[in-house]
Design a protein around this nucleic acid. Sequence first.
DNA 1: CTGTTAGCGCGTTCAT
DNA 2: ATGAACGCGCTAACAG
Lengths: 348, 348
Amino acid sequence: MPAQQRRITLKYLAAKLGVSTATVSNAFNRPDQLSPKLRDSILAEAKRLGYNGPDAKARSLRTGRSCIIAVVLAETLTYSLNDAVASEFLSGVAEVLDAHGHTLLLLPGRGRTQSPGSASMADGFIVYGLMPTTTLLDGLPQQCPRVAVDFDIDGCAAVHVDNQPASYAIARHALAGGAKRPGIVNLRLTEQPCNGRITHQTLLPEKHTITRSRLAGFHQALHDHGIDPKGVPMWNIEENTFDVSAPVIEDILDLPAGERPDLLLCMSDRIALTALTLAEQRGLRIPEDLRLTGFDGIREGQYRAPRLTTVRQDSAEKGRLAASMILGIAPRQRQVLTTELLLGDSCP
Amino acid sequence: MPAQQRRITLKYLAAKLGVSTATVSNAFNRPDQLSPKLRDSILAEAKRLGYNGPDAKARSLRTGRSCIIAVVLAETLTYSLNDAVASEFLSGVAEVLDAHGHTLLLLPGRGRTQSPGSASMADGFIVYGLMPTTTLLDGLPQQCPRVAVDFDIDGCAAVHVDNQPASYAIARHALAGGAKRPGIVNLRLTEQPCNGRITHQTLLPEKHTITRSRLAGFHQALHDHGIDPKGVPMWNIEENTFDVSAPVIEDILDLPAGERPDLLLCMSDRIALTALTLAEQRGLRIPEDLRLTGFDGIREGQYRAPRLTTVRQDSAEKGRLAASMILGIAPRQRQVLTTELLLGDSCP
DNA sequence: CTGTTAGCGCGTTCAT
DNA sequence: ATGAACGCGCTAACAG
């Protein structure tokens, strides 16, 4: 027995008790493999010595499992954690992981060319949102399960919401109210970063991004309503925050009254709420002077007056489903969740 | 050389290239220990075979470091991720960790009697908010660094904000406006869970909880203003969410006009915003009929009309500081951050 | 500059 | 029901 151990290990505990390491291991992991009496005495001694069970690092090396699931976020962690939709998604993920004894590791997708080495620690990966480059995904271990959320990876399970039908539905509703000058505020839809007015030429090529699908829904609705989508002005927002979207929205609201849109179809609640705030500051009446629609259904848009007209997507459920798939509880398919039209006061 | 390896390892790569494992290891970890030519050829072959660098599990066992920092959250993950203050804190933590090649592991404090085994994976622990029990903290590895946030652990670095002076300042400001019937809405201050009106008898004993400090600030201000704090009605909210606080707030607002407070000192912006929303629904004028103060300074309270009068605490900075302490960049002391009085329209 | 070797702490098989 | 021995994949110390 070593004189004084700086850290208590299973081996040390075994030596101290005069049993083998296997027995101590079994005491923690396979209660049926030893007598209850022995087990209890081992656990008691462990507690007395302040030994908190097998070391996670060694255990994970040996078993190959860490009970850690990583969520790779397309944006920076800072952004994602401050975004209501991403946070709600994460909370759904956390709920399921927690219920199954797993923990949540957060990995940033942006800002880092190479995923940190600790990435390979995870038992599985949930990839949330389109990555700016795929280099990061290639860096992930090939073998372990992945689930993509809000976009697609070849041959990989995925969770989506019905973006295009939902956008179509809300745009139809809004147009039925009789808009003279509709406008669309996009979210990151251009090839090059651009914060402001855009044309159809500068759009990203058709891809399976959620914002592209939402735009397709808007355009379809405009078309069905007898309006040529190409004539409808569009603006682009680079980041879904108040600070980034505010200048663009200000430009829109400060247009001469005859040019200013009387309906803004926004790709997110954050954008719509920014418009709402800035419009109120300018004394514009909602919905008389300006009608607004959002997308997401975040709480902030509903716990205020006027309530936002929007599409509610259940981000928490998206998270729960993605987590269930990773853990193998739910089948690893491609699933599309349905959304719900929320008729608020911003576009009755 | 084994016939067919199911997973590529450093050893396999070394055998394949006819060099020793140490050399391959050095190629990844200590570029100066081998010729650039050899290094390049090793990295090239690694890439070709799809080997993404040393396995994190094995590496962490060997080096003792995982480059993972755990944040233990007092509440459930679901709650914390949906709370603006906690999210902002986490984003500050993530920012610093990310900049230093570390990743963030989220551990729930509530709802689990024993921390998951994977906890011992972390190199350090940031403990955010008072734990319901200390059993969880005892389960954490003793040796590795800890930082407490918003409360104190014996002999442990800590980050705080100046809760009591800040509460004193905002209460003084509010009372200077001339309140006839002030009231206080607390956040989880009773021994037993209680959602509603409370008396001084049911209060938790004096402890170093942030809400207790805030209450002390309120009481001091009332006293200095010539009002006996014991005569001021108090309500308690069990969870800082709209859904939980709404019934209590409704009871307050639905009191007969002569009993209804004309000033509510709220312990959080979330509570104050709930009061604002519900008051608006009842046609009460803010601040004429009811004046409201919050605490935290979350965005949601400022990007709306009327803007909330509140105390702004820089949660992100709190997170950055805590992370810096854990990484050893900042000295591991007890630090108290200052706050800022934000004069909005809800209590001018 | 490169190779050899000895564990890091543990789980598991195969003995008894 | 219990113990001895092996190796998970890697890095650090040392030898050449």
